[in-house]
Amino acid sequence: MRRQPQFTFRLFVAGDAPNSVQAVAHLAAFCRDHLADRHEIEIVDVFREPKRALAEGIFMTPTLVALTPPPVRRIVGTLSQTQTVLLTLGLLDSAA
């Protein structure tokens, strides 16, 4: 029954700005709750890698980019609104 897709996330954060710190925590909690051992998270600090932010058009931090499964989705903010995140990732039905 391992047919559920693998999720790949890239989270852009701005150093240790409060929003970003929250987003990291929220994402970790979210994955633990909903995507246990079927996710991958890359955290990009735009202060260290501004060129990447520029290249990917990340202007608001924190921004979560869900690379897989397609399509690519972007969620801006602290990810505090779990329902919105679930809805965006198409996980609402299976989670319910």
């Binding site: 852009f12 701005a14 150093g15 700005a17 929003n19 970003s20 929250q22 987003a23 929220h26 735009v46 202060f47 501004p50 060129k51 932010a53 520029l54 990340i58 202007f59 608001m60 931090t61 924190p62 921004t63 989705r73 972007r74 969620i75 801006v76 903010g77 602290t78 990810l79 505090s80 609104q81 919105t84 995140v85 965006t88």
Partner: peptide, 14 residues
Amino acid sequence: VQAGDFDLGGMLAA
């Protein structure tokens, strides 16, 4: 999609 507060730090860094 917006889920929570954010800031413009990323843009400024870029």
